[in-house]
Simulated assay, not measured.
Amino acid sequence: MLRVTQTKNSLLDGATIADNLYTTPQDCEEFFESLEKPSKDPKKFTPRKTFIRAGVLTTVRGSAYMEYGNTKVLAIVAPPHELMRASARRMNMGVINCYVNFAAFATGELESVPERERHLGSMLTKALEPVVCRTEFLNFQLDIRVLILDDDGCLLSTAINCCGVALVECGISTYDLITASTACIYRNHVFLNPSSKVEELLWKHRGVQIEAASGSAPEEHGLVITASMDTFDQIAQCQQCGYLSPETYVKLLDYTLAVNKSLRQLIRQVLTTRVREQHELDLREKTESALEDKRLKEIIERLQQKGLDEFIQSNIKEDPYVKRM
């Protein structure tokens, strides 16, 4: 059985198969044959089984938790705070800093984690900068922290989706909802929302092509990560790696945009449900506060009518379990 661990993957930012199971081209071929082959031209652009919850933490203002298949991500957004005097400079837009951390139980090789965390944080910052209205908090800094609990592919796109929900939960002004998805192609088969095993297969295939000394053109293989804002038909970020022809690149781009639209509908439902729950909670608290005010008003009226001593005596109750002498 293949065992997946979180190790360095500078191309795809995904999980790596442990123990170098793809050491030869024959290993790659055998693993590819064992996979369930998707359609070469997908007709259904549906995301993975997805679970999103906004406001999972009560200690912070904005938080969200997302499960995209077996990939699990937690995002936390704090309100903007003023830049440090030592590093502050007059700026016409606010600053966004994204910090990515792997949970201790989610990684196998700790020495490669810091580099992956810095790379993912940089890509996440580039994706969220076009979405946030940074002109509304000049000389302020917005910190976004992401905790990765498990990685089974589509890590960067899942983190972008989770951060988009957390930004709305925190009340940060944004131009639109941001959604992201991943698609890749290998042996003319298109994998939508690829798993970490497929991403690693692409990485190994790329290494074999680089080492090959033949003069023939390499076979098309690569991965595309697209973050988009559908209201304005804009792309916030598009990351591509591998060898793709322009026609194939456009095809994968269209596939990811179609998946993004499906995710957008799901995220809108989650946020709508969250607003409805918060509204019901506010109404309940308002009703309880009104009842408490009414009770205090009645006590004050009784105190004014009876006087302090008589009011105290009327509220003293005898203990039924104590015998009178």
Rank of each mutant, 00 (worst) to 15 (best):
T231L: 10
Q304K: 10
L271D: 04
I267Q: 15
Q265H: 10
D282T: 13
R61C: 08
S196F: 09
T50C: 12
V208W: 12
T50H: 03
N101G: 07
L244Y: 03
P25I: 06
V100N: 05
I267C: 11
L263V: 08
I178L: 12
R276K: 14
S181H: 01
P80I: 00
V100T: 13
R264W: 07
T182R: 04
F51T: 15
T59Y: 07
I148A: 03
N70E: 11
R90S: 14
T287R: 15
D143F: 11
I17W: 04
D254G: 09
G222R: 06
I52S: 09
C163N: 06
I144V: 14
L147E: 05
L257T: 14
T58I: 02
C154N: 12
A290Q: 14
V4I: 15
L128D: 01
T24C: 02
L83N: 12
R116S: 15
D254I: 00
F191A: 03
A180F: 03
T182D: 05
V113D: 04
S195K: 08
M93D: 07
R268S: 10
G62C: 04
D176Q: 02
A106R: 04
N20K: 11
S157D: 10
E82H: 07
I178P: 09
F45W: 08
K37Q: 13
F45C: 02
I235C: 14
D13E: 12
S195T: 15
Y22D: 10
F191M: 04
S63D: 05
T248L: 09
F140A: 14
L83T: 13
T158Q: 05
E285V: 02
T59Q: 10
K297I: 02
G55I: 08
M84R: 14
E219Y: 06
Q265K: 13
R276H: 15
Y68Q: 05
L296Y: 08
K294P: 00
N101L: 09
L202G: 03
L149D: 09
H221A: 14
S314N: 14
G108F: 09
K37V: 00
E111R: 14
S262A: 08
F311K: 01
